[in-house]
Design a binder for these strands. Structure first.
Length: 756
DNA sequence: TGACCCTACATTTTT
DNA sequence: TGTAGGGTCA
């Protein structure tokens, strides 16, 4: 039996209205996931819908995983057959089974943004245009917007959004598409449009899927683009059991193609839709909810919800005016240490900023105060050079037409095939309309035909070795040899490992470690996947880079979280700091002068930031901030003005006496500080003692997890002894001597080590 | 081919 | 101010 008692009346409706179109507008913290999970569980258990007939689409793998886990917890049956997946993974899977309809082969490669950019660059290069004349990014933006709108070459668009031959970059688009096709590859956007194309051209295929998926759910609906909307529309055209859940006030990805009209116009497409609003907030204090509502109400493009909560009134929001960005960072460090001493665990605190660059200053201050922190986001494991190199080897094994992968590794390690030779080969490939691989293979096999391509005997023999190696690896893959075995063979027999090892600097060491961790990732995949194939592994990491290596936004014990507001969506913390609440910072200067639409998105962002906080919200800003090498005096954010005065207290920090500015801002509606507001604090807190309140958390806290002498077990290398250790927290590195005598260095945050 | 210097540039990044 | 990417030189 599914328990509905713990749901409020609207949530219950959202669960029980299983048939026909339903749109759930779920405010921040309104129990959205709980409702969705209950709805799916209800369909499975009470309405006897088979798992196979259900489809739930999300944006992130994290959301998909969370939902699956929670459903598994809720129902008694096996949820293995449930399709709870991201849009992209869903499309990829569908396309692999229907690939032949579109002239793709099922082993197609998925290109990420970096690879798309590389293609755009090579197209420019081919035309002899420098990246200064045309920014490849502009071409990609054009291509991306077409795909976001659901356009594929030749498609007749109902109401605009398609390509026109007169478009500046139309030629590039066509070439880009044919380049992808030649490489047997699709980009992220192409995964969606290819399915649209498939469904439009082959109605019988569409109808198969329409019949199969009786119930379809879409999470984070406000983030769907038009292409995704059309996909849903087609998929649900027959059964019409479509349930979307979203919040127009949390639409913060319009610049990625999210189309807020999908929410605002849902009723036009599904006139009989049942609209349900989840307006009760279970997360935040009354103060925070009221403040956030007052801000978001200034937006015009919304359906309008009225958030309320039964939670206590709570503390006033603390608005903190700092002298400069450095003081702001120090305040965060001091205040968080103070909260910690008062019993708030660091993992319950978070700092949200508008742009990544703001993190550095805060990191510095936290480090100085010896407070552990984690920055969510940043360089992805799979974007590191050595990882991309090895992945290119693996990709080439799976898809020989993947010329991008091939050109990346053909000379890594050096095989004498420099830029010039590669260019010659590429030209030949384009001219004979075949892939780079085919050309190289032909040259190796019967050089006679390609006498016009001048390559030294030495190059030819190393190319021949290369071809042999890849072909051998391919045979291993076809014979279902374990991916990890193939990887290790590729790593060593290609000479890549020796090539890296030749360097002895610290960076190289880190790279070798990363390669070890890649091996670790592959073995983990082998352990968890039902059918652990190499291509399966590659797909997983392209579509879900969020593996063990990057625990994403999950708060870690003892660490305060730092992230952009975008990264904060969907999370909650008891204590939150929204920093840099200044004009031109938050809202961003780019939005300040690009009109009301952009400003409304900034406001939604601010709203998202505010509604992450459960108990206490701090909003900080600096009088002066170093921006682009200059100190700027922007004045407090307009969004601060939109919060009713009675909900906040305003604290002005005394910075360093010697270099204070006069406290007035020119212009704006900024009111000189009301001293009475400061009375909220005890007098000794009004003047913040920046230096005296340096954090002193318990010492054990910063000790390395694996100090020298620890006996540990590594999941791959077995037992060992920590010989040396440096750093702590995310920076901790250890050298381990294993029982077999081998010594290895690891970054603790990556390595699968536990105390023995 | 790598190391270094210079200069241009500077939101957000679920897939 | 920080840095990534391009250009240049050894």
């Amino acid at each position: 039996m599914i328990k509905l008692d713990s749901l409020n009346p609207v949530q219950k409706q959202a669960v029980l209205n299983t048939d026909g179109p339903v749109m759930i507008l779920a405010g921040a913290g309104s129990g959205k996931t709980k409702t969705l999970v209950t709805r799916i569980s209800y369909l499975l258990e009470e309405k006897n819908v088979s798992a196979h007939q259900l489809l739930a689409l999300t944006f992130s793998n994290k959301a998909a995983r969370e939902m699956r886990e929670r459903i598994a917890h809720e129902v008694s049956m096996d949820v293995g057959a449930l399709q709870i997946t991201t849009f992209h993974a869903f499309c990829a899977k569908l396309l692999r089974s229907e690939a032949n309809y579109l002239g793709l082969s099922r082993n197609f490669t998925i290109y990420d943004e970096g690879e798309s950019k590389a293609i755009a660059k090579s197209l420019l290069e081919r035309r002899g245009i420098s990246t200064k004349e045309i920014n490849p990014y502009d071409i990609l933006t054009y291509i991306d917007s077409l795909k976001n709108n659901g356009y594929y070459p030749g498609r007749v668009m109902q109401d605009g959004g398609g390509a026109e031959p007169s478009d500046e970059f139309f030629g590039y688009f066509e070439e880009y598409e044919s380049e992808l096709h030649r490489a047997n590859a699709l980009d992220f956007g192409g995964l969606i449009t290819a399915v649209i194309q498939l469904f439009e051209k082959f109605p019988d295929v569409l109808s198969r899927y329409q019949n199969r998926f009786v119930y379809v759910l879409v999470d984070e609906y406000q983030d769907t683009n038009r292409a995704q909307f059309e996909l849903i529309k087609m998929l649900c055209g027959k059964r019409r059991n479509i349930c979307v859940v979203g919040d127009e006030d949390q639409s913060i990805y319009s610049w990625r193609g999210a189309d807020i009209r999908n929410i605002l116009d849902f009723e036009k497409v599904w006139p009989d839709v049942k609209v349900l609003k989840l307006e009760q907030n279970y997360r935040s204090s009354k103060t925070i909810i009221e403040a956030a509502s007052c801000v978001i109400e200034k937006n015009t493009m919304r359906k309008g919800k009225h958030m309320w909560t039964d939670n206590p009134e709570g503390d006033a929001i603390e608005i903190v005016e700092c002298f400069n960005d450095k003081d702001e960072a120090e305040f965060i460090a001091n205040e968080s240490a103070k909260l910690y001493r008062a019993g708030v665990p660091y993992k319950e605190m978070a700092v949200f900023y508008r742009s990544n660059a703001q993190a550095r200053q805060i990191e510095d201050a936290l480090r100085k105060s010896k407070i552990n922190y984690r920055v969510v986001g940043g360089v992805k494991f799979y974007e590191r050079k050595e990882i991309k190199d090895m992945l290119s080897y693996l990709r080439l094994i799976i898809n020989s037409k993947d010329s991008l992968a091939l050109s990346r590794i053909i000379n890594v390690p050096a095989r004498g095939v420099g830029a010039t030779s590669l260019r010659k080969l590429e030209v030949e490939a384009v001219n004979s309309n075949t892939s780079l691989w085919d050309i190289i293979e032909k040259i190796v096999d019967h050089a006679g035909e390609f006498a016009h391509i001048k390559l030294s005997a030495k190059i030819k023999s190393s190319l021949s070795e290369f071809v042999t190696l890849i072909n051998e690896l391919r045979v291993l893959d076809q014979n279902k040899v374990k991916p990890s075995t193939i990887y290790e063979k590729a790593l060593h027999e290609s000479g890549y490992y020796a090539f890296l090892k030749a360097n002895k600097d610290y960076e190289t060491l880190a790279r070798l470690e990363n390669l070890d961790e890649l091996l670790n990732a592959i073995t983990q995949f082998e352990d968890s996947a039902e059918v652990p194939t190499l291509s399966g592994f590659l797909e997983t990491i392209t579509l879900d880079s969020n593996t063990e290596f990057d625990e994403g936004a999950r708060a870690v014990d003892g660490e305060i979280s730092l992230m952009t507001v975008h990264g904060a969506k969907g999370l909650e913390f008891t204590h939150a700091f929204v920093v840099g609440a200044e004009e031109n910072v938050f809202p961003s200067y780019r939005s300040v002068d690009s009109g009301e639409i952009a400003m409304e998105e900034e406001r939604r962002l601010f709203y998202v930031a505010m509604t992450r906080a459960m108990i206490k919200l701090y909003i900080t800003f600096a009088q002066g901030r170093m921006l682009f090498g200059q100190v700027k005096f922007n004045g407090p954010s307009r969004f601060i003005d939109e919060i009713p005065e009675k909900l906040y207290s305003w604290k002005k920090l005394k910075g360093h006496q010697e270099d204070r500015y006069d406290n007035s801002f020119s212009g704006g509606n900024y009111d000189p500080y009301d001293q009475s507001q400061e009375s909220y604090y005890d007098s000794d807190e009004v003047v913040y003692q920046v230096k005296e309140t340096a954090a002193q958390p318990p010492k054990t806290y910063h000790q390395p997890k694996f100090p020298k002498g620890s006996k540990v077990v590594h999941s791959l290398y077995g037992a060992g002894l920590v010989e040396s250790s440096e750093g702590a927290g995310a920076e901790e590195k250890v050298q381990i001597k294993f029982t077999d005598g081998n010594r290895k260095k690891f970054m603790v945050k990556f390595a699968p080590i536990v105390l023995a």
